[in-house]
Design a protein around this nucleic acid. Sequence first.
DNA 1: CCTTTGTGGTTTGTATACAATAGAAGTTTC
DNA 2: GAAACTTCTATTGTATACAAACCACAAAGG
Lengths: 224, 224
Amino acid sequence: MSRASDRAYEQIRNMILSGLLEPGAQIGEEHLAEICGVSRTPVRDALRRLEADLFIKKSESQRTFVADWSLEDLEDAFTLRGMLEGHAASRAARRISAKQLNDLRAENEGLRLAIDRTQPDVTAFLEHNRRFHAIIVEAAASEKLESLLSRIVEQPVVWRTAQHYDHENLMRSWREHEELLTAFARRDDVWAASVMTGHIRRAFHSYADAHRGDLVTAIAEAAE
Amino acid sequence: MSRASDRAYEQIRNMILSGLLEPGAQIGEEHLAEICGVSRTPVRDALRRLEADLFIKKSESQRTFVADWSLEDLEDAFTLRGMLEGHAASRAARRISAKQLNDLRAENEGLRLAIDRTQPDVTAFLEHNRRFHAIIVEAAASEKLESLLSRIVEQPVVWRTAQHYDHENLMRSWREHEELLTAFARRDDVWAASVMTGHIRRAFHSYADAHRGDLVTAIAEAAE
DNA sequence: CCTTTGTGGTTTGTATACAATAGAAGTTTC
DNA sequence: GAAACTTCTATTGTATACAAACCACAAAGG
């Protein structure tokens, strides 16, 4: 891949995910170019990709804004993700290799270690979780499915809110992953799909609960 | 939208859909720029979008090739489309407006007129069909769903093969659309979803049958 | 004969300059 | 004082020039 435009893509994406660029905010190409230390050309390139990934959206007059997702939009995205990842799990159950199964086990073990401590390491949790799901999509061996999923898995607000997940929720993710592993080991595609769909669905509610807590905090801070 | 880059997008897309640019063929930016009568900048812009839409793919070394889909890839795409459009139909059944319902009826009437003649007008059929499905996706009112579907609905080979559809197949599409209309009128989301999924699924087999005929023709021509 | 390495030409990536267009603000007129 | 028009500014779109990467082919060495 190209160096400058990829750096720009990563950098802008991280700024959006971390909340440095606020949802709804307008962003100018020149401005971003300065921040990334490159010219407008690679920035425009990066913006096109971010637009396809629904991280930004353009007004009728082509001005660029950070995507602003409502709770409804998020439920919508989680529903689609549940369908698609359920399908991925079903395919994966029929195709997964011994190596991929081992990799999955390793990731879930890492995930458990990240949260099985007095202070859970949420960043590590998210990374192991991401890789766990990525391996399944890879095992599903469908280029189109992979392309579609890459566009709805990561959502800015979800990242920021994840810090508020409680220990029980994190452990439930681990347990659901374990169940998924069993389903894969048995090559049971129906089981795998239903566990996955439920897993994503529950994740949405965990998010929604944590998000409400987040809102309360924000309101309290604003009141000070 | 911008003039030159959109023209380039449309033009290149049409060249791919029509088969003028053959699957697997390498395409150079400079070359495309000449054809479209613009500079490389808007062409690169268009290529980024076409890449997101899976019309082209890039090699590891960033060279551009026309996407080459195997029959397996196509079945895969049709399966995903069935899932997503089924979901769209389900949502649409609960939300569709009277006006949208009328528009759907009009499109399907136009579709019938296009094929109810001695020599079916397949191009008109495809256009009415496209708009019919587009209205449903619009009625589903999910930005994400729309974004995902826009990336798998149109496939180069399908267009070219459509000319070989027989009259009975075309009429079945019309009848299935009519059934969908009834389901929408009754606001029956479960019915709508199952009719839609079956509709897409059958379309795949119509394609596969016609495609085999296509292959036979090609082989016969090569033998001359 | 096979492998490797260099070189020429082709293709893509980036920067910059300039053109076009949309928004904003200020002025004029009723 | 409000609405419409004009001008100015900010932002995006396009062209072009140059730099870097890559591929293919040929030549040399083992």
